[in-house]
Design a protein around this nucleic acid. Structure first.
Lengths: 195, 195
DNA sequence: CTTTGAAATGAACAGGCGTTCAGATAATCA
DNA sequence: TGATTATCTGAACGCCTGTTCATTTCAAAG
């Protein structure tokens, strides 16, 4: 009964990622079984192991992929100019990148503790790299005399927490348009670091 | 071999709560087994069921207890005065309440999805009640003309996310003193809502 | 000193877990 | 057309899961 029409690796692979992301975001890594993922995809559990060596890799690959895409997209934005301009660009980039990916964002923040120590370390480096990008902007603002934050590292963490928190309650169906959300959050960020 | 010296319910009960909180905060509700908790307490797994009807209640009771303590403590603070004064009191209260309870805070934010629908709803109400307390202060500030936030509900969520994010990275051993942390965060909050 | 009963044990229950693998299937290449 | 090969099935592996319960233990009450 194997190899039904349309069941090629080009199709099954992405479907596994999608199903895993949705299920794990909803119920958590530990609470989701390989069998549930397989059922969602419409395949027997053994077939999953043609695409991932084990469950842990499934999680790590998702998180690594997400962070990689995030860092690449940030780099591609090529944010420069004075500190205020860069901060606005960063803020709007963060919101626009995160809002359409609620599952990945949720997983990237909630499932850190389910990573092997080695995998945890790798993701940690990537997270810190993103944090540094914002801390750099804040430092530039200090130097320019445009911002006043007593600790750029702490402030960077605080602002990222604020911005990412948005992903935890925002739902597409809500009445608030993204443009309006962006403005509200940019107002808060801009004033928070102001002199 | 039962009933060794010192193994009364007054002692075992709190030890179960403590062990469960620590393990669940570290590894997640779904990843922690009743047997692990029992081992940590130094008791057989069956003994746990003298203290909780099931695993789900263990989680819910912890979260409900935490939220209850939070709301009671907030009420006891009796925060009043002008909006700026109240906002500072709320901010400092939030930090002082959350920092000494990293495990409970972690659980209260990470394990919502592992609650039964009925339990989820109950905790949701309590969370919203806390959110309302801050939103009220922001609204007062708007009325007084002391604050300028375009959406008090969104701003309240944003600020709480920022403040709670602190609990996710702050560790007692760190160099930063609580008083200093409080000041840094209060600066960010105060300016974020300023005119 | 005996009785009582809360508290803990230890074994069992049915079912789910991640992972492996021989064998079946069907699209593709020669 | 026949051989090859990627893909999937179906069954099995040993182990762990939450929960129950008859039995044992022993501090405290009478």
């Amino acid at each position: 009964m194997a190899r039904k029409q349309g069941s090629h690796s080009d199709i099954t692979g992405p479907r596994i990622e999608e199903a895993a992301a949705q299920l794990i975001a909803r119920h958590g890594y530990a609470a989701v079984s390989m069998r549930q993922i397989a059922t969602e995809v419409g395949v027997q559990v053994g077939a999953l192991y043609n695409y991932t060596p084990d469950k842990q890799s499934l999680l790590f690959d998702m998180m690594h992929n997400h962070m990689d895409t995030l860092l690449s997209a940030l780099k591609a934005e090529n944010i420069n100019g004075d500190a205020l301009t860069r901060l606005e660009a960063f803020t709007r980039f963060h919101i626009r990148f995160h809002l359409p990916r609620p599952d990945q964002v949720f997983i990237a923040y909630m499932e850190l503790r389910n990573l092997d120590p080695a995998n945890f370390a790798k993701i940690g480096v990537m997270r810190r790299s993103y944090e540094d990008a914002l801390a750099d902007i804040l430092q530039q603002g200090e130097t320019e005399g445009a911002f006043a934050v007593s600790d750029t590292r702490v402030a960077a963490r605080a602002l990222i927490a604020m911005l990412t928190g948005l992903s935890h309650w925002y739902r597409e169906e809500g009445q608030l348009e993204i443009a309006r959300i962006e403005t509200i959050y940019w107002d808060l960020v801009r004033k928070a670091v102001s002199i």
